[in-house]
Nucleic acid binder design. Structure first.
Lengths: 121, 121
DNA sequence: CAGAATCCAACCCGATACTG
DNA sequence: CAGTATCGGGTTGGATTCTG
């Protein structure tokens, strides 16, 4: 990737703010959470069930990071029982769409990837 | 998520092989390494300099994981000094292209993301 | 230059228990 | 249901040293 002085962000630089956001998006649960929220909002429990393996703590933590980045919005209705859902902001949709494309690209290559792994083992 | 024989892979399932590959690709240094290798092959030292902050150990470890997945190829020329370069396989190019699109999506939203972060602080 | 090996601190993250 | 608080083990991963 060539340097472009007109493009103010560069994930390859450790000091660039975009690096931190990339790490949120590509964190262990970040990409799955974003993908799970697109295109439909989801409640906390739905997300936990959808994203297999995530704990309450990590899901909460992941959602907070994405919320602070302005990619996810938290909607609270103070009913009983409490009704909270999470939805993507427009920016979140932009990023989630790219994440889903990455997952689709992965699916496309998985058959051959599994052959590679079988041989290297 | 139910099994669908027509779509054999599902990253949301913790047991699916695609989950592991996704974690390699979205690991701390995985996405940056893939992006740095597209479209030009690169040598070890070039990568280490390009991917700001990565250590020898982690770069080596990341490259090995991607190589075992069949996304990266290691080319050795036993000269002196040793000349080794890493290049993407066709499958690696497919995935790297998606990673680069994700990074571009990130750049597009970064200005507003930074505003969000400033306000939440 | 391209890595392997070792050591060890930091923190990630899961389990558990608890709250409104 | 939707989380928070605390604890502790296990892994991550950086620094350093060494080799071909």
């Amino acid at each position: 990737m060539a340097e472009d002085p007109r493009r103010p962000f560069d994930v390859f630089s450790g000091a660039c703010p975009s690096r931190e956001v990339l790490e949120h998006v590509t964190s262990r649960w970040g990409s799955l959470t974003l993908a799970a929220l697109s295109p439909e909002p989801a409640r906390f429990g739905e997300l936990r069930r959808c994203v297999d393996g995530v704990s309450d703590k990590m899901l909460s933590q992941t959602l907070k990071a994405l919320e602070a980045d302005g990619l996810v919005e938290r909607h609270v209705q103070s009913t009983l029982p409490p009704n909270v859902d999470y939805r993507l902001t427009p920016n979140g949709e932009t990023v989630a769409a790219a994440v889903k494309q990455l997952i689709l690209a992965l699916y496309a290559v998985m058959p051959e990837v599994m052959e590679s792994k079988a041989q290297s083992a």
